[in-house]
Amino acid sequence: TKVFYNGTYVEFNNPEKAKKYAEKVAKKVGGTFTEKNGQFHVE
């Protein structure tokens, strides 16, 4: 499961961990995250 952010991504074996990371990054940058095709995108 990949989490895309700012033109790069971090890959996780565990979708649950990926979601938590996406939430954390989104919170940090004051943005939101969306799930597309089983991957997370932070905006």
Rank of each mutant, 00 (worst) to 15 (best):
T1G: 04
T1F: 15
T1E: 02
K2E: 01
K2R: 13
K2H: 05
V3C: 05
V3M: 03
V3E: 00
V3A: 02
V3Y: 01
F4W: 15
F4Q: 02
F4C: 10
F4N: 03
F4V: 05
Y5V: 08
Y5H: 08
Y5W: 11
N6V: 04
G7F: 06
G7W: 06
G7N: 09
T8Y: 13
T8S: 12
T8W: 14
T8L: 10
Y9N: 04
Y9F: 12
Y9L: 06
V10I: 12
V10Y: 09
E11L: 12
E11Q: 11
E11H: 10
E11W: 14
E11A: 11
E11C: 15
F12N: 00
F12R: 02
F12T: 01
F12G: 00
N13G: 10
N13R: 12
N13H: 10
N13P: 13
N13C: 15
N14H: 09
N14E: 09
N14S: 14
N14W: 05
N14C: 13
P15R: 15
P15C: 14
P15W: 15
P15N: 08
P15M: 12
E16L: 11
E16H: 11
E16W: 10
K17E: 15
K17D: 15
A18Y: 01
A18G: 04
A18F: 02
A18L: 00
A18T: 01
A18M: 01
K19T: 03
K19M: 09
K20A: 14
K20W: 11
K20R: 13
K20F: 08
K20S: 11
Y21A: 03
Y21E: 03
Y21W: 12
Y21H: 07
A22D: 00
A22S: 03
A22T: 02
A22E: 00
A22Q: 01
E23H: 08
E23P: 00
E23A: 12
E23C: 15
E23K: 11
K24N: 11
K24I: 12
K24C: 15
K24P: 00
K24Q: 13
V25I: 14
V25K: 07
A26E: 01
A26L: 03
A26D: 01
K27W: 08
K27C: 14
K27T: 09
K27F: 09
K28S: 13
K28C: 15
K28D: 12
K28M: 15
K28V: 10
V29I: 14
V29T: 10
V29N: 06
V29E: 05
G30C: 15
G30T: 04
G30R: 08
G30Q: 07
G31A: 09
G31N: 03
G31H: 04
T32F: 14
T32K: 10
T32W: 14
T32L: 08
T32M: 09
T32G: 05
T32Q: 08
F33P: 04
F33K: 03
F33A: 08
F33Y: 12
T34G: 05
E35R: 06
E35V: 12
E35W: 12
E35A: 06
E35P: 04
E35M: 11
K36M: 10
K36A: 08
K36I: 14
K36Q: 09
K36L: 11
K36F: 09
K36E: 07
N37G: 09
N37P: 03
N37V: 04
N37Q: 08
G38W: 03
G38D: 04
G38Y: 04
G38A: 05
Q39T: 09
Q39Y: 09
Q39V: 12
F40V: 03
F40I: 08
V42N: 01
V42E: 00
V42H: 03
E43S: 13
E43H: 14
E43R: 12
